[in-house]
Design a protein around this nucleic acid. Structure first.
Lengths: 365, 365
DNA sequence: TTGTACGCGTTATCAT
DNA sequence: ATGATAACGCGTACAA
């Protein structure tokens, strides 16, 4: 019960001399209003500076223009890039985005989703495909348009758009094996935190397994800043007793760069003494003194595609349940042919390069 | 008008055998319900899995739990860090955050603010203090709790929390002058895009002016990725005819790092041939091969303080209209005493260091 | 402490 | 093509 401050549909109706319903119809652009009347109403709305009350609209129609977007963190180039891809599509379609950062906490995500449902959210965007089971069931039962982004599976809650992280890991593995690396290591965050990272590691493992290398050192770091995490993890890794790894792969490019800088500080020749590989192919890479070997992921395009699919889905269209985007093996200056047979490897790589496009255009799918 | 899917206050009332109002009171935790009755109602709500309809609540009370947050971009460590600082406070207080990225476009910000008002937003958070005048007036007239963050002035829309960018620029200028630098340059984005950057540049200019150096080269780059922008801007700057700058300051640390990497590629000794200075003191800096001289800004603390003030303000408390947080001059390895009188400068610095705390604890305010 | 009646601004339904 | 009326689910004001 506050003082009436905004003009409402009723006021416009009174001014023009028609009922609320005609105004409502005219404003929403639905059928059933004569062109002349519609024009006059729109003009009057403009003059009176009418603003729709979204809260009332949502209550009456049982749906809102709110889209809930849940991401693990803003401290990564991954999610801002995806969000950027989605923004234009969603805002053009007239949606507002309520964003929540979960810090990789499933229960927090689930609680927040319930809140969004309390808002009559028009749709949801979730990061990845690993969620609280009750939440999955609930969303499925409600049939609310839900996009899972960045990872894919055959059985999403509703629809999904992403890349195959396992395949990407495998691809990187094959690349490193072809170069002759045989003592791989992986620097990541604590297990279970980032499921996509775990999948990439599994893919990497699978490739090395297939090549007869069963052993893989894994270092896990729990630091927020990726640069720092990569540096710390690399230091710890190199300080371990036993044989030193000949190649280190990282969760992402930022961590890889942190690791690279540690190697330089320790005067460890990269890529001769140790190879370095990242993930994502961020723009960062284009300015580094030496580009890092990485797997390029179509983050922005993923956002665009995901948003489009979601909007189509909300409009009742039938869209692909699962959409897998390709990734690209991008060779940099931080890996090279190594080992006793480096010369021979280089020849083989020449051939492989022709066959599979080793430098730049090898891709999943 | 859809099928009734959620249990409402009415249903609980029926189940317990009381009126809706008693249920409403019990659920909201307001006075006027006997403890026994409240306990029973809460239990029943739990059992029936009651979920409040926020839309209806908002319509009836003419206010919502939505806080609109407008930031220029997610591609910077500044705004994610500020957002991170605000998150816990806002979510504990029961607010949902609707985030919009404006890409430094004032009219876009203004349009979005109107949408938030249509949602009965409980409050707004805006980046900086430069906004569309009509929007300012509108928000003032509505008296809606509004926090302007990251920059400060004497006459905010409502309340503000930030740092004094001009003073920060001046501080950096004095620092560089004390080191003997006399041919300064600044690499930034197009003028008017980022007002804070413009203010820092103005402060820097003021210091050099006071020291008798009127000339300052300014290079402006329009690239999204900060690393790339810094690198490109530095290349263009160094390719200019005429005397080369002896020190280059940047909009932020990321750009400074991009510039640093260009200098290394060109085999330009830093800091002997050219000094490099950034802004913000990001964690990035702790892992770089050589820490960049920078001005540290309390981004996270700013978010926390801002959110607390805003929540207090929404609760009707009186809070400081304007709150200025201190910045810290943080000396790195990318600047040093230079010039014909480098030796003497070093001595002076020794003294200055004692007086003003040159290394690490010089600060604004 | 509890209940009644009404209003919030809009959309849905069924008239005309 | 337009209108009257009833929701939507909850909070406010006042009465009991």
């Amino acid at each position: 019960m506050t003082r009436k401050i905004n003009v409402g549909i009723k006021d416009i109706g009174r001014a023009v001399g028609v009922s609320m319903m005609t105004v409502s119809r005219a404003l929403r652009g639905v059928e059933g209003v004569s062109p002349a009347m519609r024009a006059e109403i729109l003009r009057m709305a403009e003059v009176m500076d009418y603003r729709p009350n979204r809260t009332a609209r949502s209550l009456a129609s049982a749906r809102s223009s709110l889209i809930g977007i849940s991401i693990p963190t803003l401290f990564s180039d991954v999610f801002p890039e995806i969000l950027d891809g989605m923004r234009a599509t969603l805002s053009h379609a007239g949606f507002d985005t309520v964003i929540d950062t979960t810090d990789y906490d499933r229960s927090r995500e689930a609680a927040w989703v319930e809140r969004m449902l309390d808002w009559n959210a028009a749709g949801l965007v979730l990061s990845g495909i690993d969620h609280a089971p009750e939440m999955r069931d609930h969303l499925r039962a409600l049939q609310i348009p839900t996009l899972e982004i960045w990872d894919v599976c055959d059985d999403p809650i509703d629809i999904c758009v992403g890349v195959d992280h396992h395949a990407a890991g495998e691809m990187l593995g094959r690349h490193l094996i072809a170069y002759g690396y045989r003592r791989p290591a992986f620097v990541s965050v604590p297990e279970g935190r980032d499921r996509r990272a775990d999948k990439r590691l599994a893919g990497l493992r699978a490739s090395f397994d297939a090549a007869g290398v069963a052993e893989m050192m894994v270092e896990r770091v729990d630091r927020r800043a990726a640069f720092v995490a990569g540096a710390v993890g690399t230091e710890d890794l190199l300080n371990r007793p036993g044989p030193r790894p000949d190649v280190i792969a990282y969760l992402n490019d930022h961590m890889a760069f942190g690791g690279l800088s540690v190697c330089e500080r320790l005067a460890l020749p990269v890529p001769q003494a140790v190879g370095i590989a990242g993930f994502n192919g961020l723009e960062l890479n284009t300015v580094l003194p030496r580009p890092i070997t990485t797997v390029r992921t179509p983050l922005n395009a993923m956002g665009v595609t995901g948003a489009r699919n979601l909007v189509a889905r909300m409009n009742g269209a039938v869209v692909a349940r699962s959409m897998v985007l390709p990734t690209l093996m991008q060779d940099g200056d931080t890996t090279c042919a190594v080992g006793a047979s480096a010369g021979r490897q280089n020849e083989q790589l020449g051939n492989a390069s022709l066959r599979h496009g080793l430098r730049g255009d090898k891709r999943t799918d």
